[in-house]
Design a protein around this nucleic acid. Structure first.
Lengths: 120, 120
DNA sequence: CTATGAACATGATGTTCATGA
DNA sequence: TCATGAACATCATGTTCATAG
C-alpha cells in the first residue's frame, strides 16, 4: 500500500498526451504549447522536459511509437520532428493506464474535498 | 507567477496542524497518529519527519511557539514532549496562511475537475 | 531559430540514524 | 520504549547545456 498524496503531474501529462495522440498527429513542442494554453488559467505551466520525459515513458511502456517526419511539406524548411502514434496494442494499454489515473484523480478529488471540509 | 501543479502535502499538513492547535494541546507524534487516521481511507500516510518539519516551519514563521512538558502527570513516566501553541499574533498570521492555502486548494480542485472533464 | 534530448540542479518527501528520558 | 530531531537518500520536477537541422 503505497502512500501517496495527490496525483503527480507526470501522470496527468501522460493522460493528455494519450488523448491528443488519439486525435491528432502532433509533436513534442506542439503538445507543450497546447498544454500550456490549457492550463494557463490555472497557473500551471509545464516544462518542455516534462513533455519529452512523458513521451519517452509512454514509448518505453509500449503504448506509443515514434516516427520522424519533416515539418511543413512545402517551403517551411526541413525541420525534423518526431510524431507519436499508438502501437498495435497501444490503444488497449492506454485504456488501462487511463483507468488507473482516473481512479487516482477521483481519490485526489475526494481528498481535496475532505481537506476543505475539515479546515474551512 | 509561479508555476504550480497541485497543492503540496506540506501546506496541507500545516493547515491541519493549525486547526488542531486551535483545539487541543497535542504533541508531534499525536498529530501524526491523528493525521494518519484521518487519511488512511485515502491511502495517504504522512511520515513523522513531515510533521516535525511542518511544526518547525510554523514556529519559524512566528505562528506557533514551543513549550516542553512532561507527559502523563502521574505514573506514566517522565517522557518529555513538545507542546505547540499560538504566539501572540500567531492566530492572525495563521488566518492569513489558511486563506492562501484555501485558494490553492480551490485552484487544485478546479484543475482536477478540468482534467477529469477533458479526459473522461 | 526550432526541435529534441541529455545533463545537471533543485525541491519535495521518505528512510535511517542519533540522542535523551 | 517513545519522542524529537537531524542526516541522509530518493523521487519529482525544473533549468541549463548540447546537437541537429
Amino acid at each position: 500500500m503505497p502512500n501517496r498524496f495527490l496525483t503527480k503531474q507526470r501522470a496527468v501529462i501522460k493522460l493528455y498526451l494519450i488523448n491528443l495522440v488519439e486525435q491528432n498527429k502532433l509533436y513534442g513542442l506542439q503538445f507543450l504549447q497546447l498544454l500550456r494554453k490549457e492550463f494557463e488559467p490555472y497557473g500551471f505551466r509545464p516544462t518542455h522536459s516534462e513533455i519529452y520525459k512523458s513521451l519517452h515513458e509512454l514509448t518505453k511502456e509500449g503504448i506509443l511509437y515514434r516516427t520522424k517526419k519533416l515539418k511543413g511539406e512545402g517551403q517551411d524548411g526541413f525541420q525534423e520532428i518526431v510524431i507519436y502514434q499508438f502501437t498495435e496494442d497501444g490503444y488497449e494499454k492506454a485504456k488501462t493506464y487511463k483507468k488507473m489515473v482516473k481512479q487516482d484523480l477521483d481519490r485526489s478529488k475526494h481528498m481535496i474535498n475532505k481537506i476543505l471540509k475539515d479546515n474551512f
